[in-house]
Amino acid sequence: MSHAIGLGPTLIVDDDASMLDRLTALLKTVEGTPPPLCARSVAEARRVLSDTPVLYTALIDLGLPDGNGVDIIAQLHNQRPEVNCVVISAWEEEATVLSALRAGACGYLLKERDDDELRMALQSISRGGASIDPFVARGILALISATTDITPPPSSGTETTGIDRMSQRETEILQLVARGHSNREIAGLTGLSRLTVESYTKSIYRKLAVSSRTAAVFEARMRGLLR
């Protein structure tokens, strides 16, 4: 996006100290990334954000002691769209990850993964790509079929999203991911470069994001993604 190498100035929002440590340590290994800012609650995150004019990346956990990280993501998506929001999730929680993506996140990290895997995911994000797992692909595909089934023509509302504008190539990639193919395998099957596959993923996430924060929360609640 706005930078070529590394994640740039980064904020980590997580109430789990060990996770903060772990991510901080991992970020050190990603080239071109300064030591990250840390916040343990929504309020602290808002404070840090207001004090930090230049921010490229935000890694945000959702279950915070004073609120939901999705609110921070939605706020950043609307007010500082240059910030790459990445949601931190545990155990492939489909609802959590999807609601974050709908709010404007353009990637996710899974706490359960080994350090090596997380490092790869962070490197992918730093390259402008995004990782995607079968459960996320499955969730997006379900969202697409639900949207094409129930949504009236896009012109009828202000909360239009790009779900119904998903290209054939993007849908194909989602289907391959849902069947368990790795990015490398998908590159082989589609004849695209691996980097292109990853940027397709990011484009998918962007189309998934709804335009306003309230709409995101509203829609997340409607779809039962938020409890």
């Binding site: 492939e92 489909e94 993964r113 080994d114 090596d116 895997e117 490092r119 790869m120 797992d133 079968p134 459960f135 991911v177 849902a178 069947r179 368990g180 193919h181 790795s182 490398r184 395998e185």
Partner: peptide, 27 residues
């Protein structure tokens, strides 16, 4: 649990396959 009882074998294996592809690649 999350794949549900109606998922066929490729669907069931997908998370494992994806995860282990990444893990093997990292290794």
């Amino acid at each position: 649990t999350t794949t549900g009882p109606h998922t066929d074998l490729p669907g069931l294996l997908a998370p494992l396959r994806h995860r282990w592809s990444q893990r093997m690649e990292a290794a």
